[in-house]
Design a protein around this nucleic acid. Structure first.
Lengths: 345, 345
DNA sequence: TAGAGCCTGGACAACGTTGTCAGATGCAGG
DNA sequence: CCTGCATCTGACAACGTTGTCCAGGCTCTA
């Protein structure tokens, strides 16, 4: 009994393969591969025929197969919190540029600040065999990445450190920046200074809070609980917190805002008040200099964070790195007016 | 003479494969595949053994091989201009959410407004066999995508239409929005109205300019060349253009700004002047309502653009679409003060 | 206890590419 | 004309996965 011919499985809308190109050009499969990859050892005449055949068929090399064979994908992954946030947008773009310079594609995904989604994304990227991974952690336990790292996936954490594993990370000096910003307010004579930040389980938020506390302590000012708000950064909660600490018999005369999302809400609340309240904000904002008064900020350099992390990643891939390191980038205080207002008791 | 054993080619840092997992669990290869993919037909006991083996070895399925076999990558590509621009960040995020709902990964790349780079990126994504492509065009000739589309890559253009090919596209009503914005100024009594926009080779810029011209014409106001600036959107050029049209014996009393990059510079220039000048800007800005005066804008909905495009893409993939369509989303005029200033001659 | 039918598990080919290696061809020198 | 060498070319296996198909063991019924 003759073999029944197998029906081919579904293919990518029936795209031509090297085999098809070879058949049309009347050459061997490997010769096409050589032409496509610019390898030497092909007569100009043969090459011409192959090129013509490629054009005619609209052939495009299937990188999945290539990857399978070669073991390198020439792609890296970036897990961040939310691409719609300009801070992460700038960071992502910086990583992309470094990747591009290394002939590498960047795949990024948003975790939406959800640890589970972070893990899901990171592992999906590993399953696609990205060569490396830049992670802006949402969760605080990254042991799930251990097998991947051991298997050779270069990994760098940015903005927040890795949890429970030893890995490269690139951070801003959150503690130092916040401390400097609060000290700036104290130097202008403020004593009752509010702090509105994100949930302290987030490393950056915790560090900034620590900077606030230290600055206050350095100045010998006991901090009252009513001055601090630590929680989600949705407008409603922030608004409520701000209004709370601005009212009562002993309201704060200045506010330190823990991140850009908090800041936009705080600015709105302050704009509704008549009594001037000083403000220093962590993270810079577009147009911050054009508000009345201009917003004094502790700026971090998102692009530098991304660039540094990506460069470190490629150094890992080139095999030139010994032990994980923690790199901290400085922040910069930019005085624009809001942070220089005197206390108005 | 005995066969010399082949040395294995380089592999991904020697990751375990299904074969390894099968060997350790004492089962067949296909059984592991079944467990990994949750296919039926495996005894609980066998499944347990396999799971244990997977854990122990730190196995992760190789999606490249899977893709090769299955023909679908469960990923789509997004070619945009610059992720660091909040407008595109929001758009990208919206596309990502739709993709995620379809179990699909999003790969995005920045063209930096360079047509060649756009093409390079789009084709690189096709080589990775993305199932679909969302493109925010930088160039104006997309015939290079024809073979891909014919081969089954679903394609949707956003923000700007495709050039020289027939394809789905999702746009904002740039013409109508600009026209409405300029008419808004005319209704407040302005006649000398400046327009500062991007290079007219960019579709959105051309359409907005057309809206400006139409609104002026509708009001019977002849437009003078000195009122229009069409070119790159770097701060220096924009600043120069703005200062130019604000000085001289017959300066403009209002400015229509063609996009968000232009707007930030125009605001700066206006803030330096004492004579109030009205402003309506295309694209919304964070904090635009907190400036003095608040900035009146013609807002487009980046998220809606992205969402609509992505949904259309998946409809294409499900095969439910007949002919390419051009979808236009409305813009929204938001009056905040700057656009309601009367002319100050 | 035999036969039918179901369930589980495994052997094998195929996806499209690249690395290896050996065969074919051409040319110069003896 | 043959040999040796360099240059081109193609056959073949392998990458890790999944689809197909069949074998073997089990239960159930007559």
């Amino acid at each position: 009994m003759p073999e029944t011919p197998r029906r081919p499985d579904s293919r990518y809308g029936n795209r031509p393969t090297m085999k098809d190109v070879a058949a049309r050009a009347g050459v061997g499969l490997k010769t096409v591969s050589r032409v496509v990859n610019g390898e030497p050892g092909v007569t100009p005449e043969t090459e011409r025929r192959v090129q013509e055949s490629i054009e005619a068929l609209g052939f495009r090399r299937n990188d999945s197969a290539r990857v399978l064979r070669k073991g390198r994908t020439a792609s890296i992954g970036l897990v961040l919190e939310d691409l719609a946030d300009p801070f992460y947008g700038a960071l992502s773009r910086a990583v992309e540029e470094v990747a591009r310079a290394h002939g590498t594609l960047l795949i990024n995904g948003s975790s939406a600040e959800d640890p589970e989604r972070e893990q899901e994304l990171a592992l999906a990227l590993c399953a696609r065999r990205v060569d490396g991974l830049v992670v802006i952690p949402a969760g605080d336990d990254h042991r799930y990445l251990e097998p991947e790292i051991k298997a050779g996936v270069a990994t760098v954490f940015v903005d927040r450190p890795a949890g429970r594993i030893d890995a490269d990370c690139v951070l801003s000096d959150n503690y130092g920046g916040a401390r400097e910003g609060v000290a700036h307010l104290i130097a202008r004579g403020h004593r009752r200074i509010g702090f509105i930040g994100d949930m302290p389980r987030i490393h950056t938020a915790a560090e900034r809070l620590r900077g606030y506390r230290t600055a206050m302590q350095d100045a010998g000012i006991p901090v009252e609980d009513a001055w601090m708000s630590l929680g989600a950064t949705d407008p409603q909660r922030v608004r409520h917190a701000a209004e709370e600490m601005l009212s009562g018999p002993e309201p704060v005369t200045a506010v330190f805002s823990g991140n850009n999302r908090v800041t936009v809400t705080v600015i709105r609340v302050l704009a509704e008040r008549t009594r001037p309240v000083a403000l220093v904000a962590f993270d810079d904002l577009e147009l911050a200099d054009l508000l009345q008064p201009g917003v004094t900020v502790v700026a971090q350099d998102a692009a530098a964070l991304g660039r540094t992390a990506a460069e470190r990643l490629f150094r890992q891939l080139e095999g030139g790195l010994a032990t994980p390191e923690r790199i901290e980038l400085p922040t910069r205080l930019i005085a624009r007016g809001s942070g220089e207002l005197p206390p108005a008791d």
